[in-house]
Amino acid sequence: MTGNEPFPRRVSLARQPTRRETGDAAVTLYQVLDDAGLGDIRPVLDDEKGVPSIRLHSIDAEAATRLGHLVRKGTEENFLLVDELRRAVRAHDLDDFPAPEVCGAKIALGEVSIRTANRLACILGAPPGLELDETPDWPESKEVYDRLDAALRASDVGVFVGMWLHSYCRRCEGDPAIELGSITVDVARRLLKALQGAACP
């Protein structure tokens, strides 16, 4: 390469929707907008570039403002759910549990220390008794990971929660931690129910 070539385009291997599916989606979107009093916003099927997509024609400021309010109203419930999750986490003294945040259509969690993960496992029903060193080593961290995974699954939450175990890093002196992935709103409700149903300290 000479350095002047354009970067290669990323190729998606995901299945692309058909023209009919895209057209049906455009009709559905229009029906929702029309029901909300936004019938002047018309989704249009666009397949000029070979891949069918949905294009919104130019809309004025008033229609854009109303559309923004509609989207915000649709996500209000998610923000209320996140607030309840934060209160439930504080009620159980999970000090370094990351504050849940709305991230698109999901709720992002984050990293927890091994000690907090062990406490969360106990809150969700895991048997107590595991003594942890100040800086847990790999076997201890893996045991806590397994305990939390089992407790989440037993509470009908864990099968839907991605988890990654990060061990102690001597080079950067990073403490071991367990990363909890983003969860759907339905799973967040189950987690909230499990936390609210557990006895607080």
Rank of each mutant, 00 (worst) to 15 (best):
W138F: 13
V187F: 03
D35N: 11
H166K: 12
V32P: 00
I114R: 08
H57G: 14
C103V: 06
S182C: 12
E131S: 04
G125R: 00
G37N: 12
H69R: 13
V82Q: 07
E62W: 01
R90E: 13
E5Q: 11
C122D: 06
V51H: 02
R72H: 14
G23Y: 03
E140Q: 15
L109R: 02
S167F: 01
V161T: 07
F79K: 13
P6G: 05
A126D: 02
A150M: 09
S53H: 06
E140R: 11
C122F: 05
P176E: 06
D34G: 01
G39Y: 10
E143C: 10
D24M: 10
R15V: 11
V144K: 08
S182L: 00
L56N: 01
C200M: 06
G50C: 12
V51N: 05
R189M: 02
V161M: 10
S58M: 01
R190Y: 06
W138T: 14
E76Y: 05
H57D: 11
L45N: 00
D175V: 04
P6D: 08
R20S: 02
R10G: 02
P43V: 10
A26V: 09
D35Y: 00
L109W: 02
G23V: 00
R171S: 10
L85Y: 05
L109Y: 00
I59Q: 10
S53L: 06
S182N: 08
P201V: 08
L33S: 05
V161E: 03
E77L: 09
D175F: 11
D149L: 09
G104P: 01
V11T: 09
S58W: 00
A64C: 03
A199M: 09
E179L: 11
V32T: 13
V32F: 07
D96V: 04
R170S: 15
D40Y: 03
C122M: 08
D133I: 04
F160C: 11
R87F: 00
E48T: 15
C200D: 02
L56F: 14
Q16F: 05
D96P: 05
A199Q: 12
I41M: 12
I54F: 12
P127G: 07
V44H: 10
M163N: 04
N4E: 02
A14L: 13
E62I: 06
A36Q: 08
V89T: 04
R147G: 00
I123M: 10
A61R: 14
R20F: 04
N4K: 07
L85V: 12
V187T: 15
R119T: 13
Q16E: 09
G37E: 12
E77G: 15
D137K: 09
A177S: 15
L124C: 06
